[in-house]
């Protein structure tokens, strides 16, 4: 599988990552090489194999729905890029 510039641009958009224009060709080459490595999987016969979701085949543990933590808003917001009156600020979404 070989990726071109437009594939890289599309994937970068899906991942919400801005790409430096001058780097896109290099990413296309590297990503194509990695997908080339991964192609080896195609030859493996997995017709009667179940997908492995967990290394120890454990079921997801559930916990009771109760409050176990106190209020950490101030500590958590102290490291935020931009807060005001206890709210996280982002650029205006709705005009």
């Amino acid at each position: 599988m070989s990726l071109d510039r437009s594939d890289v641009e599309k994937i970068a958009h899906l991942a919400r990552m801005e790409m430096d224009e001058s780097q896109i060709d290099a990413y296309a080459k590297d990503l194509s090489n990695i997908l080339g490595l991964v192609e080896a999987l195609e030859a493996a016969d997995t017709d009667h194999v179940e997908p492995m979701a967990h290394p120890l085949h454990m079921a997801q543990r559930l916990r009771p729905d109760r409050v176990s933590e106190g209020d950490h808003r101030e500590e958590n917001q102290a490291i935020a890029p931009n807060v005001e009156a206890g709210l996280y600020l982002v650029p205006k979404v709705i005009e």
């Binding site: 594939d7 994937i11 997908l35």
Partner: peptide, 28 residues
Amino acid sequence: KRRIMIGTYALSAGYYDAYYLKAQKTRH
């Protein structure tokens, strides 16, 4: 960035079975 993009691609619509599901089987 490379790894995020490979992962995004492998999980994107139309490719999930060919990559992720296949890899979960070979993992088995």
